[in-house]
């Protein structure tokens, strides 16, 4: 049986429908990514899977146990790193880790090998209060505390938000080592480059999964031709592209603007002439979709359907 089984979960708060029927399974040693905007329902889903809140309907089993009836069993077997830093700010690094080990009836020594790679980096500061740590170090400590009881499943809710690219890369290397130990991970992230590092990802919006697949399959399933354009004046270029009749969805994307087109056989020469007439020295080229483009496309389609 898969360590995480989520089946048709619904959850509402007052008038707000946070989750509208979410289902997925994550296998042993899988890194399952949940990608979506703030308010899409990611944190509600994490709280249900970690037995902190109850779903309105649907079922969820974690490590073989039911989140409603057998929550005590689950709590012994999972680690949770919430989005907000939730360690004891007034306790030192070492005290926090000792505390979490003690709560789960273990010791730092017993599972030191699991956290060693990470803990060694913060060990020089082990007498420092957790509240005085920088962002990257807090995140490493939180991961140690979530791991010290050797969980079967690890839930990570936006673990790298606000962390610089170098620390983020180190963090993902740690997750890969944990995967090799057979730990199942469900992780949410707003970073699309991290989405690529997951075995499978689900895109979530407005409480619904828009799609679940391997990152490569998600990008391969982007069937509409996608184009990129840049010029010396990117803001005017954006407005001019949007005003062009054959262009459907156009959005900024760093160095280039990306756009999809309506109908078959898009005439790039005509577009180039149009852009030249608007004063652009533009470069237009066809490109392969990234995860981020898929997200933009799915998000647009989802909001059209709900209107």
């Amino acid at each position: 049986m898969n360590p995480v089984i989520v089946n048709d979960i619904h959850k509402h708060y007052g008038d707000v429908q946070a989750l509208r029927g979410v289902s997925f399974e994550a296998g042993r040693g899988e890194i399952f990514g949940i990608i979506g905007p703030d308010g899409a329902g990611k944190t509600s889903l994490f709280r249900i899977m970690t037995t902190l809140i109850l779903p309105d309907s649907g079922t969820c089993r974690v490590a073989g146990f039911d989140v409603v009836k057998e929550y005590k069993e689950i709590r012994k077997r999972v680690g949770y790193m919430p989005g907000r830093f939730s360690l004891y700010q007034d306790m030192s690094v070492e005290e926090n880790l000792t505390f979490f080990a003690a709560v789960f009836g273990t010791t730092i020594e017993e599972n030191y090998h699991l956290v060693a790679d990470i803990y060694r980096q913060i060990e020089p500061f082990k007498t420092r209060r957790a509240g005085k740590l920088s962002g990257g170090m807090k995140q490493k400590l939180a991961l140690c505390c979530a791991l010290i009881h050797k969980p079967e499943v690890l839930f990570l809710d936006e673990p790298t938000t606000g962390v610089d690219p170098v620390s983020r890369k180190e963090f993902w290397e740690m997750l890969k080592r944990l995967k090799a130990e057979g730990i199942t991970m469900v992780v949410s992230t707003p970073y699309m480059d991290e989405a690529r590092l997951c075995d499978r990802i689900a895109l979530i919006k407005d409480g619904r999964f828009l799609g679940i697949d391997k990152p490569n399959n998600i990008t391969a399933s982007f069937r509409t031709p996608l184009w990129a354009a840049k010029s010396q004046h990117m803001y005017h270029l954006l407005n001019d592209l949007r005003a062009y009749p054959d262009i459907d969805n156009c959005y900024v994307s760093g160095e280039y603007h990306h756009f999809t087109t309506r109908g078959e056989g898009f005439d790039t020469d005509a577009l180039n002439r149009y852009l030249t007439s608007k004063g652009h020295a533009a470069e237009v080229k066809q490109i392969e979709a990234t995860i981020e483009d898929c997200y933009m496309h799915l998000a647009k389609t989802a909001s059209r359907e709900s209107e």
Partner: peptide
Amino acid sequence: TGGVDPETRRQFWEMIYEAAD
């Protein structure tokens, strides 16, 4: 833009472009 999804980040950058313009 910490912690913001790609769609909202793009809207945010459009606002930045507009201000710079």
